[in-house]
């Protein structure tokens, strides 16, 4: 007989592993990926593959040769960073820029802080913001979606957010929301299809990988805030405007997949809601009054920085804190 094992309790485990969480998120991203392949074709595929490969390779090299530790690429976190970074890029972005973004995301966004679990900012977001500031021209020229697109440099066009920013009421009212839900809209290729992203959200909730608190509070805040801001133009218009705010740009992608990143979001339910509400407010503020048409990345990025503070003040409700609360 083998030697008996002795260990402290508990002796069973839920079976959930870090890798399962990461791959679960990847599975949830699949619908959005297929939609982007449909509309942006080869470009989307190339950018995704490049980002994933370079993220994994950079993580491996840094862990093995710089930190001299065991590489942990098998847990899928580097793949996830790569996919999320890619989804936040235009499909016609030159691949060398994608590689630079990956290097920044993994090297500075993650490894410089000590690797998985220690980073303050979402690495994919750090990569995207770095690229947005360094290559504003390339990062804000989005190709028009086109079914079964095989061309690498198609026509480019304005996104819904550009139209919203311009604030021309007639133009805004004419936007076809249905097309936006499906994904037939300009933008970074992972963020265009609301339905695909929401399907991913449903999967994540079903698998209990994330809770509803962060996405719902972000979406609700953005809706309510943009509704009240434009209320003076009439209720009907405000409703359309608020609705468009939710379905346009990276809001859904950010709310469901980026803001919910375990490492950089708060630990308690209350903290998560506060975090979501503040992200929503900052996003709308930047979108309406800031210099950039899109504020989601910056909002999440700022709130990533505030997360430790939220964790410090939003404690879980302890048992017995309010004794005899019949």
């Amino acid at each position: 007989m083998n030697k008996l094992v002795v260990s402290p309790s508990p002796h069973i485990h839920s079976g959930l592993t870090t890798a399962q969480c990461m791959y679960g998120v990847l599975i949830a991203l699949l619908p959005a990926f297929f939609v982007s392949l449909y509309y942006f074709g080869l470009g989307a595929l190339l950018v995704t593959v490049t980002a994933v490969l370079s993220c994994v390779v950079f993580e491996y090299l840094i862990q093995k040769y710089l930190l001299k530790g065991q590489p942990t690429i098998a847990n899928g976190s580097a793949i996830l960073t790569g996919v999320l970074l890619a989804f936040n890029l235009p499909s016609n972005l030159p691949l060398w820029i994608v590689v630079i973004g990956s290097l920044f995301a993994i090297g500075v966004g993650k490894m410089a802080f000590g690797g998985l679990g220690n980073n303050i900012f979402n690495p994919a977001l750090a990569g995207r913001i770095f690229l947005l500031i360094s290559f504003p021209q390339q990062m804000t020229t989005w190709p028009r979606p086109q079914a079964f697109n095989m061309a690498l440099d198609g026509e480019t066009g304005a996104t819904t957010l550009n139209i919203l920013k311009r604030g021309n009421i007639d133009e805004i009212i004419n936007i076809d929301v249905m097309e936006m839900l499906i994904g037939n809209a300009g933008g970074s290729f992972g963020e265009v299809s609301a339905i695909a992203l929401l399907a991913g959200f449903a999967y994540l909730l079903l698998k209990r990988i994330i809770t509803w608190h962060i996405p719902v509070s972000i979406i609700a805040t953005v809706f309510l805030f943009s509704f009240f801001v434009t209320l003076h133009e009439g209720i009907e218009y405000a409703l359309i405007f608020a609705e468009l705010q939710i379905f346009s740009g990276g809001l859904l992608l950010g709310a469901i997949f980026m803001a919910t990143d375990y490492v950089t979001s708060p630990m308690t339910r209350g903290g998560m809601i506060l975090y979501g509400v503040l992200i929503g407010i900052i996003t709308v503020v930047i979108r309406l009054w800031g210099a950039y048409p899109e504020g989601m990345s910056f909002a999440i990025f700022i709130m990533n920085g505030v997360t430790p503070l939220i964790n410090n003040y939003m404690r879980p409700k302890r048992y017995g804190e309010v004794a005899k609360n019949g």
Partner: peptide
């Protein structure tokens, strides 16, 4: 000779509190 194998946090204090040892 080691008669069993310990699996748990690698700390003598924890092992000592738990049991006699390996």
């Amino acid at each position: 000779p080691r008669t069993n194998s310990y699996e748990g946090a690698s700390s003598c204090a924890i092992t000592h509190n738990l049991y006699i040892g390996e």
